[in-house]
Design a protein around this nucleic acid. Structure first.
Lengths: 217, 217
DNA sequence: GTCTATAATGCGATAGAC
DNA sequence: GTCTATCGCATTATAGAC
């Protein structure tokens, strides 16, 4: 959508939101694509249909815009996760199976988020530290796992000695790597991770890995 | 070591190697620290004790220098891996346990390699594709796993339906994430992944995850 | 709020001496 | 092979008009 095609009928407040939102959307794409140092304000201006002055008017600096984009991408993750309701009526094993599969699918569906996180780790977490709100946003995932573990332990189907944060880390690692390292892995092992059969097989392996890890011995 | 402190007594050929090697070392650090777009030729020149012209004389361009650094960092990985001899006299389970632990330790010990790989995935693998030799370098890891799987299946301790590349991917994912996502994860979950107890516990969890995955049912 | 024009500097790359 | 000096463009950021 070019700037010319934007509706001009909204209120001033809506216009302001719309301008900010549009710039933020484009910025998120750009930072995700090439990282903080690789991103170009010129490119964000051109793609958003505004000029550079507008970006500085709304966001102050390139770094502040990056922080806003980083926060926005974590917020979207949370929103997507909230839409996934792990039914408490499901028994623990199928519930965990569903949750791990959803995590794998989510990562696969949001490469731009994975790239933002990679970027920020390249930055050694310098900017995420400026957004304390992100802690609360992410820790709901742990609460969910804690309850699930408790139910599974009570039912005798899960082992009792697993730390939920550790479990979360394993699920994330297996889901994340598949997207984050796609290019180098695909090249080296000549296996196209994007191919549907490969993708499906990998999904099964990941779910299976976690389920076996949790299974009471 | 500053340029002034370098020995001047070596032959011309040695000097050339030394110059190239020194620039390459510094470049590897710089690219690993901030990625291709974040790296500064000025910084590499200053840190190596040479000037920019020397870098262009030996490597041609910033991108060519990056490719050389990328190749060098993969070569070092291989070298380290070669030093790990998985004793064929070990029975399959202890051997796999040792191999996974070594992979975890290796990743933890070489954050600069992990950062190079992250960087290159941000670049969508554009530069690694120019180094076909890297395929051979990495696939020896698969051969090792294949033999190990075969022995374990023959002994009846490993399941028979696991693809070695898939297994390699899981081991890498769990080892890699621990380093690659250290900053964001540590911040969000307020768990210092660098702390010795946390590190050791995570190592155990990773080894255990893979062992349970492979165990014959 | 939004634009054009431009300042100010950063940065990859090279010329030319030794 | 190595240096100094500098080119030339890219890029962040701002001034000032509307």
């Amino acid at each position: 959508m070019t700037k010319a095609s934007r509706s001009k009928s909204a209120s001033a407040r809506d216009d302001e939101d719309s301008t900010r939102a549009r710039i933020l959307n484009v910025a998120l794409q750009e930072f995700s694509r090439v990282g903080l140092s690789g991103a170009r304000i010129d490119a964000i201006a051109a793609e958003s249909g505004f000029n550079k002055a507008m970006i500085y008017y709304h966001f102050g600096s390139k770094e502040d815009l990056y922080v806003a984009a980083l926060e926005e991408s974590y917020r979207r993750v949370r929103q997507s996760e909230d839409e996934l309701h792990i039914d408490e009526s499901l028994s623990p094993e199928p519930a965990l199976r569903k949750l791990v599969g959803a995590s794998f699918d989510f990562h696969a569906a949001h490469p731009e988020f994975i790239r933002m996180v990679m970027s920020e780790n390249i930055n050694q977490g310098e900017y995420i530290r400026k957004i304390p709100a992100l802690r609360a946003i992410n820790r709901s995932a742990i609460t969910l796992l804690e309850r699930l573990c408790q139910r599974g332990i009570a039912d005798g189907v899960f082992r009792a000695d697993v730390d939920p944060v550790d479990l979360h880390m394993s699920i994330s690692a297996l889901s994340f790597y598949n997207v984050s390292n796609r290019h180098t892995f695909s090249f080296i092992f000549e296996r196209d991770l994007g191919a549907p059969e490969v993708h499906a097989a990998r999904r099964e392996a990941v779910v299976d890995t976690i389920l076996r890890y949790m299974r009471a011995t």
